[in-house]
């Protein structure tokens, strides 16, 4: 569910795109690639994992977390955010804590996630191999939990 940015495709193009008035005459640049981002790796999800994205409405995501903690009977939930959604994940966790009047505690962890991009040549016959490259992106995993009653 983690959606760092709108994943998808954009073009890295060396020159301005020609209108196709003279298509066969223009020789294509061999270094023209289309970038296509693959989805981040997905791990099996538990019930109390919440992956935060930028597409769903913020209130809906917050309500989902609250439901899990209150109605769902979970003592703890994990809020994950990747890339752009880190901000929102933190926001959700803090909102949860604030609305619980201090009953909830947070424990945040950060990590690095490896993402894969496919570079597809525009002219596959010449350029041969489609390339892949990896890049890293930051992620945050916030555990939101009720502290044990026998604790201090």
């Amino acid at each position: 569910m983690t959606e760092p940015r709108s994943p998808g495709m954009s073009s890295i193009q060396t020159g301005p795109v020609h209108t196709d008035s003279t298509p066969p005459a223009v020789e294509m640049d061999p270094v023209e690639y289309t970038l296509r981002k693959r989805l981040p790796r997905k791990l099996p999800k538990r019930r109390n994992d919440v992956y935060v994205n930028m597409k769903t409405d913020f209130r809906a995501q917050l309500a989902r977390c609250q439901k899990l903690l209150e109605g769902g009977g979970h003592r703890e939930i994990c809020v994950h955010g990747l890339g752009l959604a880190i901000n929102r994940a933190i926001n959700i966790a803090l909102q949860l804590q604030a609305s619980s009047q201090g009953a909830l505690q947070l424990a945040a962890n950060t990590s690095t996630v490896e993402l894969v991009d496919d570079l597809e040549p525009e002219d596959p016959d010449e350029a041969g191999e489609p390339m892949t490259r990896t890049r890293n992106n930051s992620a945050i995993h916030i555990k939101v939990f009720y502290p044990d009653p026998q604790g201090p």
Binding site: R38, L39, R41, K42, P44, V116, D118, P130
Partner: peptide, 9 residues
Amino acid sequence: LYSTGELPS
């Protein structure tokens, strides 16, 4: 692999 989307198409 957890999901089929992870592979090159």
